[in-house]
């Protein structure tokens, strides 16, 4: 120790100065971190302000009828009449289909990975699930057009139309016949489901893994079977966390553009059927923005972006609150 100190003093002054600067870097580091977090917030706020300002023309000229769910579906750049409801519906219904399909599958995957899977299989399987999220969405889109639509969606669509199309109320969502190409809201929803499964499955798996083993042991010690332990202890314990995962997945489904554009058919119509082609907000923006030549059309597209931004923002805030709640629900010592 003595030797080390004397060695320090033998060094040239500039090296000591440089060293002390490195050692006292904590303050710089904190400053950097604060700057980073401020930048993140600032970017969000600036995006919001920009969308609000740029959509001014549309908000003033079209007003609230832009959002009216009762107007006929209209998006007519030639006559400058716009209504966004069909696109909101398209975005919400495809995301809903995605969630309905993806949630049970993802929770099943998460339970298998955290509770039932033999340890040697866990790592490769987790990796494969996460690999799904690394596939570019345009690849999903191409695969959708050439393989998934003709091979799966068309027959499934015909079956759903026959089986459910005549049920009152619900039947409206399955009014057929499905287009021969398979381009439909259903196709977009199922592609989205495949795309959000990795997100929901990975986060849910982490939720299950975070549940203290004392909970499992207590349940098993009371004589519960493994199935009962999963169903009555682990799932209720992790509910909020799973809900957070679901809403994160929903956030991705709402904003996904490329794959949806390629399979949904991009058709503006008044049908509510899943088997008919539709249109989503993000597809509309991606399709029309580049070649939008009149100011009101551009502004209306930006207003669509604003609505989408607020929708996803609200959902993400809810997701954060839920995740925060689950981490606060149990005292720290119970989690070890």
């Amino acid at each position: 120790m003595q030797k080390a100190i004397s060695k320090q003093h033998n060094k040239p002054a500039f090296i000591r100065k440089f060293q002390s600067a490195l050692e006292h870097g904590d303050r710089v580091w904190i400053g950097l971190n604060i700057a980073m977090s401020v930048i993140v917030v600032a970017i969000m706020v600036l995006i919001g302000i920009l969308l609000w300002n740029q959509s001014a023309v549309s908000r003033q000229q079209i007003g609230l009828s832009f959002l009216s769910p009762f107007a006929a579906p209209t998006w007519d750049p030639v006559n400058n009449t716009y209504n966004t409801w069909s696109f909101i519906y398209g975005t919400l219904i495809t995301s809903l289909v995605a969630i309905v399909i993806a949630v049970p599958l993802s929770i099943g995957i998460a339970i298998f990975l955290s509770e039932l899977c033999p340890p040697w299989l866990r790592a490769p399987l987790s990796m494969l699930v996460e690999l799904l999220s690394a596939i570019p969405s345009v690849v999903y889109g191409l695969w959708g057009i050439f393989v998934f639509l003709p091979a799966v969606i068309t027959p499934v669509g015909i079956f759903l139309g026959d089986a459910l199309g005549s049920i009152p109320l619900l039947g409206g969502f399955f009014a057929g016949p499905i287009a021969a190409s398979g381009s439909s809201r259903l196709a977009a929803g199922i592609i989205l489901a495949i795309m959000i499964i990795p997100t929901i499955a990975a986060v849910s798996r982490d939720v299950f893994l975070a549940i203290p083993s004392s909970q499992r042991e207590a349940s098993l010690a009371l004589g519960a079977t493994r199935w009962e332990t999963i169903g009555r202890v682990l799932v209720p314990y992790g509910t909020s966390g799973i809900l957070g995962a679901v809403i994160l997945g929903l956030g991705r489904a709402l904003g996904e553009t490329m794959a949806v554009t390629m399979v949904i058919g991009n058709s503006l119509n008044s049908s509510i059927s899943l088997l008919k082609p539709g249109y989503t907000m993000s597809s509309l923006i991606a399709n029309q923005f580049a070649e939008s030549v009149n100011a009101l059309n551009t502004s209306a597209l930006i207003e669509v972006a604003l609505v989408l931004f607020l929708m996803t923002l609200a959902l993400n805030i809810i997701a954060r609150l839920l995740v925060w709640r689950v981490s606060r629900r149990f005292p720290a010592e119970a989690r070890t």
């Binding site: 579906p73 209209t74 998006w75 007519d76 750049p77 030639v78 057009i145 050439f146 639509l149 003709p150 287009a179 021969a180 190409s181 398979g182 381009s183 554009t261 390629m262 058919g265 991009n266 058709s267 503006l268 119509n269 008044s270 049908s271 008919k276 082609p277 249109y279 399709n287 029309q288 070649e291 939008s292 030549v293 059309n297």
Partner: peptide
């Protein structure tokens, strides 16, 4: 115009494809 509201969409028989390749693929698959 560069984008219009298609009457055939409103009638429920229209599909939009992205770019020339998208239109060609939709026609070939439908």
């Amino acid at each position: 115009g560069t984008s219009i509201q298609w009457p055939v969409d409103t009638a429920g028989n229209g599909i939009g494809g992205k770019g020339n390749p998208g239109v060609a693929a939709a026609v070939q698959n439908t």
